[in-house]
Design a protein around this nucleic acid. Sequence first.
DNA 1: GCGACAG
DNA 2: ATCTTGTCGC
Length: 229
Amino acid sequence: MDYNTLTVPQATILQKELKDEVIISPFHKKITLIGGADISFNKFSTTVYAGIVLLKFPELTPVGYSLVKKEVHFPYVPGFLAFREVPALLDAWEQLPVKPDVLVVDGHGIAHPRRMGIASHFGVLMNQPTIGSAKKKLYGKYEEPDLTQGSHTILLDKADLPLGTVLRSKTKVKPIFVSPGHLTDVDSSLKIIEQSIRNYRLPEPTRLAHNAVNSFRKGVLEEGYTPVS
DNA sequence: GCGACAG
DNA sequence: ATCTTGTCGC
């Protein structure tokens, strides 16, 4: 399936089909390896730099970086981020020597109009446990959490069903939006993200992935899989 | 018709 | 998302 030639109406149909394959269930397996995925690109360019970082858990020390460059033509349309970023992430994924127990994707999971955010989309395609961690809300309603670190409220859909968590990852910073992608649920995704926060607002997996793809885009890091020495 | 709107 | 320097608040 070539996402580059899809129209938004066609992409909507695909999301509605994939939606039935998303599995929301508690994740209780022990985690020893966690991954972080993100994309970077130059404004107005069709080249995207994708990356997946592997980290030891619970230490959160980087183990390796998988970086790939790819051409994309699907535009950024709110609600359809997956059609723009998933293809490149799949390449980075296949390039990994070992797969992580759970992957944190920069974006939303089921906290989406059709419950098919990029984290759910990727998870279903790869049959892989995923969690969405976003910096802004896309869909849902919530009460602002207290300003102290760790405070959180629930992100709800129109029927008041839980979609995810609005988490104050650090004291007095804007909250982040955590939602299950695939093979995880609201509680376990929150627990895993809480254990992935260190000294910054964003969890280490996506924070390091973001740093990596930016370095890659600037030529500081090279394409391919690179183990950390 | 009017807001909202991941990256 | 990316482009950018200084500046404000704790």
